[in-house]
Design a binder for these strands. Structure first.
Lengths: 250, 250
DNA sequence: CGTCGCGTTGATTTTGCTCAAGATGGGTGG
DNA sequence: CCACCCATCTTGAGCAAAATCAACGCGACG
């Protein structure tokens, strides 16, 4: 399974799908403020950007496979991706969703610890692992930023352990919607009509449930007038407080 | 809940519980090779050790509480600790067990993201967060080592997500025993009669199960002649291959 | 020697899973 | 532009794995 639309163009020329701005290099990148590169000075950024290649992924296209040598790291600029692990019989656990500004490559290992593929069409910046290592040795800010991101990821995962180990289906779904909303705000989007680009199946495999249970639970939350589902894959959070209480088991 | 037996003695003088060696400072520490400090040169180690205080904890003594300001970091030298998060109604998820050589403080946050308390009598080295930050800025090896540990923790947690989200009770317990065994080897202990110092309750809260289910599952594994329980809180792994197959869902 | 914490075992219940059948809706081709 | 098709989502009925509730054994410790 090779990367499908890997076009090793530099940042400036022909990008496969256009969409929002970011025509200029890193300095003008729309996710710069909250991505890895946000902590860099203009000079550092130039050096960083010189090594970066732009990647475009179609829906369902695998970016990296679990167990494959970890040669590249990525920074998401557009779209949504999922990271997952499989058991031999096909059971799947999605370990996280990646959104613009998210960095893929914190788990510095010889091989990728999970498979990653596109949930929606996505664009990313690709950088060789060894380039990143050199850069981060030379640029303390970059190193510190990676540290920071790894810490946040660690804290996030601990919360996900609590969710998977101890929360009910309703608590899981409520937590999930609120987390999506919070993360949308963090990357400069709106909190309320929250974008839910992934399928019920993906949500189920992230929350340790089945599609049917996710669906039923959503219906139930709708019935309690806590959320409203729009048909553009967004969900209106009607009563965030009540949802938060459910999410925390209150 | 204050730290009970916090004795801010330096490394050399009176240690509360004796036990194995480590009478001399860091250089002679018995966990040095696999702990944070393993990557340091003798000179660096001296500087590091100068800031370290020795801590002794009794069973059940909390070391840090979730939400409390993160002022200190720790390196475990003896014993076993557990790290957990709680829901309001008392549901508990143990996010990890800490053994000699393990570092507590990777999740660099303003406040601790989990509560940590002693499972067995334990000794640790304590260091102020800000001291560590200064040291790690001055000592690249230290910084890199912390990076490495955070990466490993991240990979480990991803595996735990798969366990909690998708594995059956039997698969969870089998995975748990094998993980304990593997970690024992990593810190220079033996793989086979594996030390299981924590209670059934703790195991249950780590695996997202109940005490009863853990107990029944252990009984079942015993019935299949895959393990033998000794009465000194160790478990003999009779058929590691079969156990591994179960753990992977085969 | 009694008590208490912990572990085990048994009986019953429940939550979420499995299996099955529609509904919905976006995309495609006539 | 419409009709059809297939994915995805929803809903329903029955089932099963693990939770809950309850009782009991056992060893440690006072």
């Amino acid at each position: 399974m090779p990367i499908k639309s890997d076009r090793p163009t530099l940042l400036t020329p022909a990008r496969p799908k256009s969409g929002t701005g970011d025509s200029a290099p890193c300095a003008a990148c729309h996710v710069r403020d909250f991505a890895v590169c946000g902590a860099l000075t203009p000079a550092e950024l130039d050096r960083f950007g010189g090594e970066v290649h732009r990647i475009y992924l179609d829906i369902g296209t695998p970016l990296v496979d679990e167990g494959e040598p970890e040669r590249n790291v990525y920074s998401v600029t557009q779209g949504c991706l999922k990271s997952y692990k499989l058991l031999a019989d096909g059971r799947r656990q999605i370990t996280g969703f990646l959104f613009p500004g998210d960095f893929l490559g914190l788990t510095r290992s010889d091989t990728y610890t999970a498979t990653v593929e596109a949930v929606t069409p996505a664009t990313l910046c690709r950088l060789q692992r060894k380039e990143l290592d050199q850069l981060s040795r030379a640029i303390p800010n970059l190193d510190r930023r990676l540290h920071e991101l790894a810490s946040e990821a660690l804290a996030e995962l601990q919360g996900q352990l609590l969710l998977l180990g101890r929360k009910t289906a309703q608590e899981r779904v409520a937590s999930f919607l609120l987390t999506l909303s919070r993360r949308a705000v963090e990357r400069g989007s709106v909190a309320n009509p929250v974008d839910v680009p992934m399928s019920r199946d993906d949500i189920a495999d992230f929350l340790g449930l089945t599609t049917e249970t996710v669906s039923r639970t959503m219906t139930r939350l709708r019935g309690q007038n806590l959320i409203v589902a729009n048909k553009d894959k967004t969900i209106e959070i009607v009563d965030a407080d009540a949802l938060a209480k459910i999410a925390e088991g209150l």
